[in-house]
Design a binder for these strands. Structure first.
Length: 415
RNA sequence: CGGAGCGUAGUGUCAACGGCUAGCACGAGUGGUUUGGGACCAUUUAGACCGGGUUCGAAUCCCGGCGCUCCGACCA
């Protein structure tokens, strides 16, 4: 798209009361706008990143054999009462209709909806196993929203639920989900910093697992075993006697980290209260066993910024960048500059390459500064100077050197 | 929820002694000159979180509320 059509504008300075780095950069560059504490608008640039993340996750979920659905944000009180969480889940937003005495919750997670829904369709072993997921906004009445977009009160989550006949089948799917998560974080560009982390399992399993991305902005402490590339959450490190659960090594290093995903065996925690059962071949009834698997999308976006930036701005990983190419036209009297830029812009678009074309009537310096701040992986400059040298100047956001490449060659090599 | 800090144009401001017309920069508008690292000149625009109180006089002091941030607690 043309940058002149973007209604947002970059800022030189972050709002004073924004201490977290991810929020500072995302706000300065025009990706998000804070509406109130813990609640952000995804602006056009931010939404593009968000959709990239969403698509990566969706592709991997489909690969896992899960079907997508969409559950409501507005939840009936009775479902939450049935599991006891209406009164015990502090984070649950609860409210009453102004017209009646009917009470509602805003979905903080969706076991209370998916379980009774599945019960309406599933009653036989023949219908198991299966998995279904959604990408939807969650509401949590956090006592304290913090760390920019890392802990908000409204945020998007991918929540996957799987349904099984027995523990072995749940276990098998759980492992597959873990592998799927690794691919997701890999593709989103934070794989190198993200660790499969042992965490407390609740009452139904010895452990659950989290995917923890190492960053100072995180609120968890994990202990990493570099040999196994796994980690242990601080909450259970004492139970494990400060040893790696896989190799037994005591050489663990502690790091601050943010939980970007988790996988959890629910077993019959939710199927029991909703009487979600199936009949086996012999005709006897059993609780369906469930697993749940979450990824916070806003948090993933914020984490990517925390992990990949420099003093000038964001450096988006390729997989989730809002655009692939930032085409910059340095304005000049020479009309050939504009016509060349337009030509390259059109050519890139027709090749299906996402390009942000800075066609604005502002100085070169401002365009470069904006480009660094916004952080698109590849910068392509067209100016009188570049044309004299024979083409366009190409520079990667994460590298210092640039190169002059002939227009035809550039268009031929870019994929 | 406990503790702390902060609320001045759209943004920033360790700008302003309880006292004159609330200053400066950025942004935005207009006119002009510019065009390879947030250009320049001229000009315009726009502000005290809300409510009380103290005082001759409050941006400044006091009280209450609201908001934001940070630390803690909480957080599958």
């Amino acid at each position: 798209m043309k940058q002149s059509q973007l209604f947002t504008r970059t800022r030189k300075e972050a709002p004073r009361d924004e201490a977290s780095l991810n929020a500072q950069l995302l706000i300065r560059a025009g990706f998000v706008d804070k509406v109130m504490a813990g609640v952000y608008t995804l602006l056009p640039l931010g939404l593009r990143v968000f959709k990239k993340i969403e698509n990566i996750i969706r592709e991997e979920m489909v690969e896992l054999g899960a079907s997508e659905l969409l559950m409501p944000t507005l939840n009936p009180k009775e479902n939450w009462e049935k599991t006891g969480r209406w009164d015990t889940l502090d984070n649950l937003f609860r409210f009453k209709s102004h017209y009646s005495q009917i009470e509602y919750a805003l979905g903080a997670t969706h076991e209370e909806i998916i379980s009774p829904t599945v019960k309406k369709f599933v009653s036989s072993y023949k219908e198991l196993p299966f998995a279904t997921f959604q990408i939807q906004n969650k509401f949590r009445d956090e006592k304290r929203a913090k760390s920019g977009v890392l802990r908000g009160r409204e945020f998007f989550m991918k929540d996957l639920y799987s349904f099984h006949m027995n523990a072995a089948d749940l276990e098998k799917y759980y492992e597959e989900a873990a592998r799927s998560y690794r691919r997701i974080f890999e593709r989103a560009g934070i794989g190198e910093n993200t660790y499969y982390t042992y965490a407390s399992g609740g009452s139904f399993a010895k452990y659950s697992h989290e995917f923890q991305a190492v960053t100072e902005a995180g609120e968890d402490t994990i202990y990493i075993c570099d040999k196994c590339r796994v980690a242990v959450n601080d909450e259970i490190i004492a139970d494990l006697e400060h040893k790696c659960p896989e190799c037994g090594s005591e050489e663990l290093r502690s790091e601050k980290a943010v939980e970007v995903g988790n996988i959890f065996k629910l077993a019959n925690k939710f199927s029991a209260p909703f009487e979600l059962k199936y009949r086996d071949k012999e005709g006897s009834e059993h609780d369906v066993l469930m697993g749940c698997y979450g990824i916070g999308l806003n948090r993933l976006m914020g984490t990517a910024v925390e992990l990949s930036h420099d003093e000038k701005g964001i450096i988006w990983p390729e997989g989730i960048a809002p655009f692939k190419v930032h085409l910059i036209e340095v304005k000049s009297q020479n009309s050939q500059v504009t016509s060349s830029a337009e030509k390259v812009y059109t050519a890139l678009k027709s090749k299906g390459i996402e390009v942000l074309y800075d066609d604005r009537e502002v100085s070169a310096g401002e365009k470069f500064a904006d480009s660094d701040l916004i952080g698109i992986p590849l910068r392509v400059v067209i100016s009188e100077k570049s044309l004299e040298k024979g083409g366009v100047e190409v520079k990667k956001r994460n590298e210092k050197e640039s190169a002059i490449v002939a227009v035809a060659e550039f268009l031929a090599t870019i994929a």
